[in-house]
């Protein structure tokens, strides 16, 4: 059984039909990527999974449990966290406080949370250096690290990443993506949304192409990289 199964979801913004029946699965241990152009519905898909913009029709199943109508804060407790588009760092909280917010739902002893914190600091040493700084003072790359670190603090069963490459210099994009790969190798299941199709497809196990709220193509990363239509539309 898939860890996450999205079945024919339809999401609306007012009268705008943003998702027109999206279906896909994420297996335990995979990196699955959703690629597509601006406005195709990639972020909406993630926000629908997280309960921020609930689906009007369709189902979202996490490990056999229907979470379609579950409120966002409950979904985090069930093990789905997101590093959202634009990072959404709390700029007036310190880096350390931002990370603690990520562990908000955890009820295990403080020492366990500290352990996760050490793990995050090991992955992103820069965050440890800047622990006492306000989130708003970080550079774009550091904010992306903080957004991912914050999402990891909940010890998620599946980590959703929305456009981690956005606005970053190519060298930083490389750095972030090698960290994403390492996170996956150490056992984190990842659902990745990207406009940068080249790099996303090169690290993913499987990918889906979204166009105007619908999935138009699916395959392994390699298959999609070689696909004529993908090459033309997204790899340019």
């Amino acid at each position: 059984m898939a860890l996450l199964e999205v079945r024919d979801i339809h999401t609306y913004y007012g009268n705008i039909h943003a998702l027109r029946g999206i279906s896909f699965t994420v297996e335990q241990g995979e990196i699955v990527t959703l690629i597509g152009s601006n406005g195709a519905g990639k972020s909406t898909t993630l926000n629908t999974i997280c309960g921020i913009t609930p689906a009007r029709h369709g189902q979202i199943i996490l490990d056999g449990r229907d979470i379609t109508r579950t409120p966002p804060h409950e979904i985090v407790k069930l093990g789905v966290t997101q590093a959202p588009e634009g990072r959404r760092i709390f700029s007036r909280l310190t880096v350390y406080e931002n990370l603690l917010m990520g562990a908000f739902t955890r009820t295990d002893p403080r020492t366990e949370i500290e352990q996760t914190l050490e793990m995050v600091y090991e992955i992103f040493p820069r965050l440890k250096e800047r622990a006492r700084q306000m989130g708003g003072t970080l550079s774009g790359g550091e904010q992306q690290m903080l957004a991912i670190g914050r999402a990891l603090m909940a010890k998620p069963r599946i980590l959703l990443l929305d456009e981690p490459s956005m606005g970053l210099a190519p060298i930083l994009v490389q750095e972030i993506f090698s960290i994403i790969e390492r996170l996956n190798e150490s056992g984190t299941t990842i659902l990745l949304v990207e406009q940068n199709a080249q790099i996303a497809l090169s690290i993913c196990s499987r990918g889906y192409v979204i166009q105007t709220g619908e999935i138009v193509l699916a395959g392994t990363g390699k298959e999609l990289l070689e696909n004529e239509m993908v090459r033309e539309a997204y790899l340019g």
């Binding site: 921020i52 804060h73 997101q82 959202p84 709390f90 917010m101 739902t105 909940a154």
Partner: peptide, 11 residues
């Protein structure tokens, strides 16, 4: 600061 981001933290 940000209600949606707070909800994504499980608040």
């Amino acid at each position: 600061e940000d209600k949606d981001a707070a909800a994504l933290m499980g608040i």
